[in-house]
Design a protein around this nucleic acid. Structure first.
Lengths: 245, 245
DNA sequence: GACGGACTTTGCGCTGGATCAAGGACCCCA
DNA sequence: TGGGGTCCTTGATCCAGCGCAAAGTCCGTC
């Protein structure tokens, strides 16, 4: 049902787990930091960093843990979330190569972070990082701006969670993900979804069944195509309309 | 129904609009900046500021407008929100004395801000503000930390919007407001609610009817007392439990 | 190549909160 | 003291999305 027999699907549509999110480990750090920062700032930060590797499902840090590090994701994808005592979970976002984690430099992490598939990151010791940027106002300002953009996206998210329907949530999620992928140089048509349906549900304030049903319906309507490991966006215009601000 | 005849209510419970939120205009700026910042940082910022006064409902700035100013609220309360083309609204938060607005220093405002009742703020010209803090790394770091706290609260809000029931939303809203009031030296028991039911609804992702019904039920259950212009929290323990993280 | 486990899809009945509709309280101003 | 506007409350009904249950799919492993 999800792949129509007459549909031409350009390779790769086979589930190569996280394939598009792994760009070769050697270059990853370079790619990542250059995407987010000017050369000169990268040169300042680079010497402080140490590599961290995570296997599928491994935790990078836990909510409320003392935040002694700042991270920059270099490959793979991470899930950021909070959990209530009774098990209800809110996935506040996903992190991809180039994203900073813990950049607000608070004493404790605001969320937990774990890996979807395998992932790597640069770790910076927080106090050293703080001292360093204190000596580089331009860099600090740049990092502040990145935090400001995250805050702005958080407000988009509030609107999404508080005032939009299931279909709009799914649409906005997919279009937003596509935009982020394009910005880091990944496919714009076939979206890899390294997170599961349950992660998407807990991100959008829905249940896994509603996510599944809504995706199925969009597939049936020819709006998108569910492929193993992800989704192909077909009717971009309609998706854009349903996720429009 | 909302005020039980046998309940002793300490004055003031009469609706003095925004009474507790107006602390005398002359001292307001001092109070505000001293609350948020150390003395030395206040002395740096103070000379750049100009007073702005807003009447009830007046707009301080609009979403997507070029952000040429940073503000620090000195009296009253503001509503921060986004609106979708079809009229659906998400109130992303409320601002009280001491709060900064536009601190992420992006080119455009992420939300609209208007006054609930009358309000005043300090206005800083954005570029001058930026230049100034570039020369004061400690101050910039402090402001960055404030932004980080706002981001953390935004994530609380996502959890609230995505995963909690109407009653939990109301409970968490009231307890959170109380905590903020305490921090700026206002009453801890009788909460003034300068925003209307519709503002609360649009903040919590509910309808005005659900907000009204839920408050009525909590009143009936002896959990709180609806008084003109606000609410008195009676069963703090139960409220804390229902809003617990 | 078939067994087991994790994830996804689908059907069905249910419910929390939305929607529609009607009053009620309060306030400003005449 | 009364009339009109705004906001709030309450009741009745509806429905989008939830919760449960049962297949179905995919994948790794032995």
């Amino acid at each position: 049902m999800s792949i129509h027999p007459l549909t031409v699907i350009p390779a790769p549509y086979r589930p190569i787990p996280n394939s598009l999110l792994r760009n070769g480990v050697g270059k990853a750090r370079l790619i990542s930091l250059s995407a987010a920062l000017p050369l000169v700032e990268r040169d300042v930060l680079e010497p402080l960093s140490r590599r961290v590797s995570l296997a599928h499902g491994e935790t990078l840090y836990g909510q409320d843990e003392p935040a002694c590090s700042v991270f920059n994701v270099t490959s793979g994808a991470l899930r950021l979330y909070r959990i209530l005592p009774d098990g209800r979970r809110q996935v506040t976002g996903f992190a991809f190569p180039g994203d900073f984690l813990g950049l607000s430099l608070l004493d404790r992490f605001a969320v937990s972070a774990d890996a979807l598939g395998s992932a790597t990151a640069c770790r910076f010791e927080r106090l050293a990082f703080k001292d360093l940027i204190c000596g580089h106002p331009g860099l600090m300002m740049h990092l502040h701006e990145i935090t400001g953009q995250e805050l702005s996206r958080a407000k988009d998210m509030m609107m999404l969670l508080g005032r939009r329907t299931a279909e709009e949530k799914i649409g906005a999620f997919l279009v937003g993900l596509q935009e982020r992928y394009v910005r880091i140089g990944l496919s714009a048509v076939t979206l890899e979804l390294p997170m599961g349906r349950l992660d998407i549900a807990d991100h959008l304030g829905l249940t896994i069944e509603t996510v599944s049903r809504t995706l199925s319906r969009l597939d049936r309507d020819g709006c998108l195509l569910i492929v193993p490991g992800g989704v192909r966006l077909l009717d971009q215009a309609r998706l854009a309309r349903m996720s429009a601000h």
